[in-house]
Design a protein around this nucleic acid. Sequence first.
DNA 1: ATGTTACGTGTAAACGGTTACATCAACGAC
DNA 2: GTCGTTGATGTAACCGTTTACACGTAACAT
Lengths: 339, 339
Amino acid sequence: MPNATIRDVAREAQVSVASVSRALNGHERVRPELRARVQAVAARLGYVPHAGARSLSLARTSVIGVVLPDLHGEFYSELLRGMDREGAAHKLALLLTVLQDGRGLNTLAALRGQVDGLVVMAPQLGAAELRAQLPAGLPAVFLNCVPELTGAALRVDNAAGAAAMVDHLVAGGACAIAHVAGPVGNVDAEERRYGAIVAAERAGVALTVIEGDFTEASGVAAGAQVARGAVRADALFAGNDAMAIGALVALKRHGIAVPAQVRVAGFDDIPLARLVTPALTTMQVDIAALGARAVQLLARRITAPAEGLVQVGPAEAEAIVPRLVVRDTTTETDRERQS
Amino acid sequence: MPNATIRDVAREAQVSVASVSRALNGHERVRPELRARVQAVAARLGYVPHAGARSLSLARTSVIGVVLPDLHGEFYSELLRGMDREGAAHKLALLLTVLQDGRGLNTLAALRGQVDGLVVMAPQLGAAELRAQLPAGLPAVFLNCVPELTGAALRVDNAAGAAAMVDHLVAGGACAIAHVAGPVGNVDAEERRYGAIVAAERAGVALTVIEGDFTEASGVAAGAQVARGAVRADALFAGNDAMAIGALVALKRHGIAVPAQVRVAGFDDIPLARLVTPALTTMQVDIAALGARAVQLLARRITAPAEGLVQVGPAEAEAIVPRLVVRDTTTETDRERQS
DNA sequence: ATGTTACGTGTAAACGGTTACATCAACGAC
DNA sequence: GTCGTTGATGTAACCGTTTACACGTAACAT
């Protein structure tokens, strides 16, 4: 038999199961000597409490579900990194679920019996769809979802970020901006598009939207349009860094100087942004912190009923404003001139 | 009460709990009509089986633990992506644990009661350390660990990959190779170093090792050494792409032409490798496939005892040979000449 | 009619923890 | 010497499932 149970420990230590439980869980009313004996036996037998049994008794699992859209790129590893860090602090493990196209619907419901709460990131799903699939009565925190959901919501203030970027471009002398937008239906993409349009209007500069889909390839296409003059612009602001980098490649290929002729900016500050030449100006989101904050909020919601203190009403929303990171694609630097 | 139990369903459907269980779990001996009625009631009540109770009864959790080193970069999202895909196919959920410096020791033991098996990736840990911490008797698959562990091992054949790269460089005319090695103690790094040294000897070309630590910064330093002539080389082979890219930056900064004066190669084929200019020649590992394969192997080990068919001896090792991807840093292309 | 078989369904015993409650010993107060 | 009181420990019920076994019924062979 591979796994020792609490009864094995009890027998071996010549005490009752109750005492073993108390001794190992740090209860008060246990003689220190007995506690030591129990701990010694437990260690010797390699006893580890059965998580299932425990969750049955305690009515909690100490596991939180993390629901993410199709994982790609370093964004998710950063997010998970932050979540894991915070989860460890609360003694919560992370159960990962990827919401791929077809599946995930039932998968999501099945999570109910398995976790104490959920962190859900699903920019491509509508509120109705999401609500329909989500287990009711399970604490949840939403990341960058459509805002009308009950439950705590945590979002990146995409509109504000996009506006800040447009302002930066305008301040640098841009008169005509091309915005390479992300896919329709993606909340992030739409908020950025909206923020850019509003800011451009307010600043009185022209803004043309080129449709993209967050892939580098669509950025290349957009860059080519600007290079060929199909879209007249002296600044190109892409809805994410991947597209901005694609645009950079296209512009370079067409012999357009960046930033001298066209300034380029992205969004997200992926590690790569720093490394391309010229280095990409972008909006930075501290993704790990975002993940950590989500878990923190969730942890609070999970323990709240017990403490009876924290308000867990439906209206707990928070926005993280991204930070402008100015690099070489919007300012002429020494390195740029020399190359 | 938020959650319906099997008894609620039984009462509501006017049958016994046993029938409910059988009806919902697709047992044979259930009248179709009764099955339908039970399913209807279960759906109406939003019944979801309690995972803990189930795991108690069945003695399995349908969860596998994934233990990874401190997450950084797209490598991990790709790996998780592959694991999740394969896990979903086997109806296994992924419980994520990051092995950070201090913690993880006890965390790892605590996993025992919680999962059916483990995928462990810990290039920085020795066999003894690892074995001491791992729950005994739990199926496990190791990714790029020191090879002497019991349990299935899956590794990237780093030595073969490094040798292939050296051969490629030599075939292209290199006479003196500088190898920027990764940190001492890291298995991947050491295997690559070893493979490079052996291949260079066999090919009869000089090879100088420059110590690095897998960071871009150490690549920059190494590139500078070659540029200044402190290390004489006409080809620079870095132990990973991050360092290769750092070296590229340094060489460019010193006005050294790549690949005309110095050829550069990396290892891993991170997405970024394709995007730098000139595009980086590197060894590609299909990371998602690696993750998927690991889960597949683990799933087999978990179900093996039940089937009594598959051999689960200690000696199940598999190596994935990376593929050489030739890009611009080792061959002069049109684009390179024009720039 | 009766025995056999097959099948559908119910009863109850696990599974491994936690914990309310009972018990018991030791002690001090009267 | 008796009676609380207190603190440490044991007993047993419960958490929600699964499933071996028991049971009742109907079809069929005898």
